[in-house]
Protein backbone atom coordinates (compact mmCIF):
# COMPACT_ATOMS: atom_id res chain seq x y z
CA UNK A 1 0.00 0.00 0.00
CA UNK A 2 1.12 3.58 -0.31
CA UNK A 3 0.67 6.62 1.89
CA UNK A 4 -1.43 9.41 0.43
CA UNK A 5 -3.50 12.49 1.22
CA UNK A 6 -7.01 12.98 -0.14
CA UNK A 7 -7.00 16.21 -2.15
CA UNK A 8 -10.33 16.05 -3.93
CA UNK A 9 -13.39 14.18 -5.14
CA UNK A 10 -14.53 13.06 -8.58
CA UNK A 11 -18.19 12.90 -9.51
CA UNK A 12 -19.25 11.26 -12.76
CA UNK A 13 -22.71 10.28 -13.94
CA UNK A 14 -21.65 8.67 -17.21
CA UNK A 15 -19.54 5.67 -16.16
CA UNK A 16 -19.39 1.90 -16.16
CA UNK A 17 -22.66 0.84 -14.54
CA UNK A 18 -20.72 -1.36 -12.12
CA UNK A 19 -19.34 1.80 -10.58
CA UNK A 20 -22.69 3.29 -9.59
CA UNK A 21 -22.58 4.13 -5.89
CA UNK A 22 -18.78 4.32 -5.73
CA UNK A 23 -17.18 7.34 -4.09
CA UNK A 24 -14.12 8.44 -6.08
CA UNK A 25 -11.46 10.37 -4.19
CA UNK A 26 -8.29 11.90 -5.58
CA UNK A 27 -5.32 10.73 -3.52
CA UNK A 28 -1.91 12.39 -3.88
CA UNK A 29 1.00 10.15 -2.90
CA UNK A 30 3.12 11.33 0.07
CA UNK A 31 6.70 10.55 1.07
CA UNK A 32 7.67 9.74 4.67
CA UNK A 33 8.06 13.45 5.41
CA UNK A 34 4.49 14.02 4.19
CA UNK A 35 5.77 15.93 1.17
CA UNK A 36 3.33 15.56 -1.74
CA UNK A 37 4.78 13.65 -4.69
CA UNK A 38 3.77 14.15 -8.29
CA UNK A 39 1.72 11.01 -8.73
CA UNK A 40 -1.86 10.60 -7.66
CA UNK A 41 -4.65 8.09 -8.17
CA UNK A 42 -8.42 8.15 -8.27
CA UNK A 43 -9.35 5.62 -5.61
CA UNK A 44 -12.65 4.16 -4.47
CA UNK A 45 -13.28 4.83 -0.79
CA UNK A 46 -14.09 1.80 1.40
CA UNK A 47 -13.59 3.28 4.88
CA UNK A 48 -15.42 6.62 4.81
CA UNK A 49 -12.38 8.85 4.30
CA UNK A 50 -12.72 12.59 3.73
CA UNK A 51 -10.77 15.39 2.12
CA UNK A 52 -7.43 16.21 3.73
CA UNK A 53 -7.09 12.91 5.52
CA UNK A 54 -3.91 10.80 5.31
CA UNK A 55 -4.83 7.35 4.03
CA UNK A 56 -3.43 4.06 2.74
CA UNK A 57 -4.28 2.98 -0.79
CA UNK A 58 -4.09 -0.58 -2.13
CA UNK A 59 -3.67 -0.83 -5.89
CA UNK A 60 -3.84 -3.45 -8.58
CA UNK A 61 -6.11 -6.48 -8.38
CA UNK A 62 -6.03 -6.30 -4.58
CA UNK A 63 -8.33 -3.29 -4.91
CA UNK A 64 -11.12 -5.64 -6.01
CA UNK A 65 -10.87 -7.63 -2.77
CA UNK A 66 -13.70 -5.88 -0.93
CA UNK A 67 -17.44 -6.55 -0.79
CA UNK A 68 -18.18 -3.42 -2.77
CA UNK A 69 -15.43 -3.55 -5.39
CA UNK A 70 -15.65 -7.30 -6.07
CA UNK A 71 -15.81 -7.91 -9.89
CA UNK A 72 -15.78 -4.19 -10.57
CA UNK A 73 -13.36 -2.21 -12.71
CA UNK A 74 -11.46 -0.78 -9.74
CA UNK A 75 -7.67 -0.84 -9.31
CA UNK A 76 -7.21 1.53 -6.34
CA UNK A 77 -9.06 1.45 -3.05
CA UNK A 78 -8.64 3.46 0.15
CA UNK A 79 -8.45 0.79 2.86
CA UNK A 80 -7.24 2.72 5.97
CA UNK A 81 -7.24 6.18 7.49
CA UNK A 82 -3.87 6.77 9.14
CA UNK A 83 -3.97 8.01 12.76
CA UNK A 84 -0.23 8.07 13.30
CA UNK A 85 2.89 6.63 11.79
CA UNK A 86 6.39 6.31 13.17
CA UNK A 87 9.67 5.70 11.37
CA UNK A 88 12.19 5.35 14.24
CA UNK A 89 15.19 4.46 12.09
CA UNK A 90 16.87 7.86 12.06
CA UNK A 91 18.44 7.56 8.66
CA UNK A 92 15.00 7.25 7.12
CA UNK A 93 13.30 10.14 8.88
CA UNK A 94 14.63 12.59 11.42
CA UNK A 95 11.65 13.45 13.56
CA UNK A 96 8.60 11.25 14.34
CA UNK A 97 5.46 12.55 12.60
CA UNK A 98 2.36 12.63 14.79
CA UNK A 99 -0.75 13.26 12.67
CA UNK A 100 -3.52 13.30 15.22
Amino acid sequence: MFLGRIIGTVWSTKKDENLIGAKFLIVRQLDLKLKEKDNFVIAVDSVGAGEGEIVLVATGSSARQTEFTKNKPVDAVIMAIVDKFDVPLKKYLQEQENLT
Binding site: M1, L3, L32, S46, V47, G48, A49, L56, T66, M79, A80, I81, V82, D83, K84, F85, D86, V87, P88, L89, Y92, L93
Partner: peptide, 23 residues
Protein backbone atom coordinates in the same frame (compact mmCIF):
# COMPACT_ATOMS: atom_id res chain seq x y z
CA UNK B 1 11.08 -2.83 8.26
CA UNK B 2 11.59 0.88 9.01
CA UNK B 3 8.49 1.85 10.96
CA UNK B 4 4.87 1.37 11.99
CA UNK B 5 1.52 2.75 10.80
CA UNK B 6 -1.48 2.96 13.15
CA UNK B 7 -4.97 3.16 11.68
CA UNK B 8 -8.02 2.49 13.80
CA UNK B 9 -10.34 3.22 10.89
CA UNK B 10 -9.43 0.50 8.38
CA UNK B 11 -10.88 -2.42 6.47
CA UNK B 12 -12.47 -4.51 9.23
CA UNK B 13 -10.64 -7.74 8.36
CA UNK B 14 -7.32 -6.03 9.14
CA UNK B 15 -8.07 -5.13 12.75
CA UNK B 16 -5.80 -7.81 14.20
CA UNK B 17 -2.80 -6.93 12.01
CA UNK B 18 0.07 -4.46 12.26
CA UNK B 19 0.78 -2.24 9.30
CA UNK B 20 4.47 -1.57 8.79
CA UNK B 21 6.64 0.64 6.59
CA UNK B 22 9.00 -1.47 4.52
CA UNK B 23 11.96 -0.14 2.55
Amino acid sequence: VIGNVWATQKYEALHAFKLMFVQ
